[in-house]
Amino acid sequence: MARIIIPTPLRKFTSNQANFEAEGKTVSEAILALTTSYGNLKQHLVDDEGKLRSFVRVYLGDEDINVLQKEATPIEKDSIISIIPAIAGGIA
């Protein structure tokens, strides 16, 4: 199973688990497995249409899935998927 690494601010929604073993053939399926197991996490990761929120980035290994096949990127049993908050802000 692929391993999803949960960032610190979202671990309160995963019972403090930093890792999640996910079934699935794509990044999208793995994320769905995660949000199915931890329902309260869903609103922070995906919108009402199931698309990843703009401030959430997902990496497969060291590569941003946006330069691969986005959510449809295939994963392997030993894949490591990192969820990374896009950190930004400012006065305006």
């Binding site: 671990r11 401030f55 950190i87 802000g89 006065i91 305006a92």
Partner: peptide, 20 residues
């Protein structure tokens, strides 16, 4: 926040993560 109050903007809020 250079030359602005230490109050979060709407942009700060919309981009913020829980718990942090």
């Amino acid at each position: 926040h250079p030359l602005h109050p230490a109050i979060p903007s709407e942009h700060d809020r919309s981009q913020a993560m829980p718990w942090f």
